[in-house]
Amino acid sequence: MLAYIIRRLLYAIPILIGVNLLTFALFFVVNTPDDMARMQLGVKRVTPEAIQKWKVERGYDKPLVWNAAAAGSATLTDTIFFSKSVRMFAGDFGRADDGRDISREIGSRMGPSLAIALPTFVLGLFVAISFALLLVFFRATTLDFAGVVLCVAMMSISGLFYIIGGQWLVSKVWHLVPISGYGGGLDAAKFLILPVIIGVFGGIGSSTRWYRTIFLEEITRDYVRTARAKGLPERVVLFRHVLRNAMIPILTGVVVVIPSLFMGSLLTESFFGIPGLGSYTIDAINAQDFAVVRSMVFIGSVLYIAGLLLTDISYTLADPRVRLQ
């Protein structure tokens, strides 16, 4: 097991290097730092001095990958590639345009992001699986058909509608919770409840449909027929046998997103004014803060790769037949 995990971790390294090279190419080779400076400073204020100042402030005034002027190992380390890309592996993301340290900012914003993403994830999983089991229990009836139609209809509604509509109805018409904002401690609950409910509601359509397909596929297996032949009630067949055996396909899709919960949700956080990583990313995109966007891309892929690893490990826990080679 340990050997397997170590080998999987080693596999992750070339992928992370690939992601790193890709972001480097995207941010520094496709456009030179001069182009970025010209774009950010606007047409009027572009003078060679202003561009130079902009580059020095951000540390973009060095050569890209090879500093011929420096001596010794500094030919490689005193470059944009080393200071901006390689240092990300050490968790050093540099400074945002407002001068704050990105690593510290990320650390302080993970909490609020997780406070929304985690309950949404757990609750959404629970609701969608129960709903799907219900539909499978009543399969091939009018109720099942109506449920599927409802799911397709809910899938077809834009996520923005759920947020805007929910915010309007609950906060503006019913005045139940504040429209947006965030507080520390227990106070946070009243700000979190609406985004969580909306997040669960918005995801129900597609996930219920997906789980329903999995359960329906599982229900045609031989062991289900055996269980029914033994005279077990349908309730027991579904909840004890089918649900457990459907764990493998469910885990495939579910576990991989768990680490990414730290990233938060772009839309929910910015609509509800929650100071998490999602709204941080959106603000950075709107302010064209390239350093922050680059860091978020890197962190996002690290978390995704962690999710893949967790998925493989969870298989062994859910199904003893799966052996890790």
Binding site: I15, V30, M36, V297, Y304, L308
Partner: peptide, 28 residues
């Protein structure tokens, strides 16, 4: 390797990064 690397970057972020860079190109 190519598609694992690409798909390991969260979609919205990769799109955002690429679109930001495209804006720079169009604006310059």
């Amino acid at each position: 390797y190519l598609y694992t690397t690409l798909s390991s970057i969260p979609g919205v972020l990769l799109i955002a990064a690429a679109v930001l860079m495209m804006q720079v190109i169009i604006d310059t």
